[in-house]
Design a protein around this nucleic acid. Structure first.
Length: 286
DNA sequence: CCCCTCTCCTGATCGC
DNA sequence: TGCGATCAGGAGAGGG
């Protein structure tokens, strides 16, 4: 389940193995993978073919490639739940869920593989938001904590302005981007905050420390190469991440809290699983 | 405008 | 052995 660290690992892989190559052909095997490109698959293939990749960008969980001939258009990639960007030799058998395959000028192929088809590719114009060029589909996404221009105090204000539970707010990509269910639970555990507490009810110092923990957990995960739970997530070369051994909250129901030893609990929240320590992270009174 | 629920999808796993 | 139910969750549409 790719969140910011995993997506950044993919971006680096694209920077190393795709930037500088020219797309010589593209084929789309599953129309759902390009559903956000409204003019359709043929249009997307036609407009990418012949172009040279200039740069690989990321904000939060969104990736985009820009091309050497036109900085005002980008290929926006979202990995969704299970998307992979694989660079393979052309002779390697096509994966079962390889929905888009782009032939590159060095003889390799860039393949978009996505079992659950929540992700996809789309071409979009680039616009400028707060001094930074981003594709239009990314314009509403907030800066992530690893962005050099991330404004932590502005993020603290944005979080505390929400009349909703803190976990819901952290998952809202328009407030702070990059966090998904796993790293939100890890951040809340590190900061000793229950996800059902009101965002507006948290003090400024508490929200500051929560943001600092979120930043730290994502940096740590990035250092370790991204989290992986199964073969659904692999980086651009097909290598799995290995950060899962370091998780303190996610997936640890009934196991002892690594801080206090109390059995961790699993609760349902927003139709998803939440993991927390009942002692370190007391739930709010209702 | 803000908040929240629902829906899309496939494969692994479990109980009967 | 087979089959239906359940679970995994990012993000946008649409409802209140």
């Amino acid at each position: 389940m790719p969140e910011l660290p995993e997506v950044e690992v993919v971006r680096r892989g694209l920077a190393d193995h795709v930037v500088g190559r020219t797309v010589t052909a593209v084929s789309v095997g599953h129309p759902r993978a390009v559903r956000r490109h409204l003019p359709g698959a043929a249009d997307l293939c036609g407009r990418i073919t012949g172009r040279t990749v200039a740069c690989a960008h990321r904000r939060g969980k969104y990736l985009w490639l820009t091309f050497a001939d036109d900085p005002d258009e980008a290929l926006v990639v979202h990995l969704g739940m299970s998307g992979q960007m694989l660079v393979q030799a052309a002779g390697v058998p096509r994966e079962k869920h390889a929905h888009i395959v782009a032939d590159l000028s060095d003889g390799s192929q860039l393949r978009f593989v996505d079992q659950r088809t929540f992700g996809g590719w789309a071409l979009a114009p680039v616009t400028v938001v707060e001094g930074t060029a981003v594709p239009v589909p990314v314009a509403h996404i907030a800066r992530d904590p690893l962005d050099p221009l991330f404004d932590a105090e502005a993020a603290v204000r944005a979080i505390r302005s929400k009349r909703s539970e803190i976990k819901r707010v952290l998952l809202d990509q328009t407030v702070v981007s990059g966090l998904g269910n796993i790293y939100v639970d890890e951040s809340l555990w590190r900061a000793k905050i229950h996800g059902n507490r009101s965002a507006a009810g948290l003090s400024r110092p508490v929200v500051r420390s929560l943001l600092a923990e979120a930043t730290a957990v994502m940096r740590d995960a990035l250092t370790a190469g991204g989290t992986s739970f199964d073969a659904l997530y692999v980086n651009v070369n097909g290598q799995s991440g290995y950060f899962e051994r370091s998780l303190n909250a996610y997936g640890r129901a009934d196991e002892p809290c690594r801080r206090c030893g109390a059995p961790m609990v699993r609760e349902q929240f927003m139709n998803r699983s939440s993991f927390s320590c009942p002692r370190c992270q007391p739930p709010p009174r209702r």
